[in-house]
């Protein structure tokens, strides 16, 4: 953990410095967390809601943070859990009967006014949505965010070996998807 984060955590745990430290934390991590969430839920509106919920959870639970992992990993873990919970609860609330998560998320993506990708990018997102949840998370973190396996391992609580295998399978499935549409 870097020294800035250590100081930030110490300040967050003190009542008189908490507000200022929290503002610093939000500014430092908001963009990274937003893009991580956005790649999971695909729509901007949902990503915005989840990012706010993530930071509120951080505010409420900072006292319980034991500093066993880095602050960055802890935040990523909360953001990932919040995103998956959000998808599952909204899928249940949806008026249209969805067969699976990928269908729900594809609808999210198509109706999102802030998707700026071309047709190939849309196809890539469609291919990613065909993957099982864990493979989808690993693929996004490795392919787009270029995260190290060690970091992904800490966020998802999965061994590095299993993550490498997941990424390998995910890449092969996406390749197969493009092969079929050619």
């Amino acid at each position: 953990m870097d020294n800035d984060d250590r100081g930030l955590i110490a300040d967050l745990k003190q009542e008189n410095k908490r507000d200022l430290a929290f503002n610093t934390l939000v500014i430092k991590y908001q963009e990274r967390l937003y893009w991580h969430i956005r790649k999971i839920v695909l729509s901007h509106e949902d990503a915005d809601d989840i990012l706010q919920n993530t930071f509120i959870k951080v505010w409420k639970n900072i006292g319980n943070f034991r500093e066993e992992s880095s602050l960055y990993t802890w935040l990523y873990r909360i953001a990932t859990n919040e995103s998956l919970t959000y998808i599952n609860s909204n899928k249940r609330k949806s008026f249209v009967q969805m067969n699976d998560t990928s269908e729900f998320l594809m609808n999210n993506l198509v109706s999102d006014p802030y998707f700026e990708g071309d047709e190939i990018q849309l196809k890539l997102q469609e291919a990613i949505l065909q993957l099982p949840e864990k493979q989808r998370l690993v693929f996004n973190m490795k392919y787009f965010d270029a995260m190290k396996y060690d970091e992904i391992s800490e966020v998802l609580g999965t061994s590095v070996g299993a993550l490498k295998a997941s990424y390998h399978h995910a890449s092969k499935k996406i390749e197969e998807f493009f092969k079929n549409i050619d």
Partner: peptide, 13 residues
């Protein structure tokens, strides 16, 4: 095919 794709962020805000 996957390797040929540009790693662009297709999302906007």
């Amino acid at each position: 095919r996957l390797s040929k794709l540009k790693k662009e962020n297709p999302f906007g805000t």
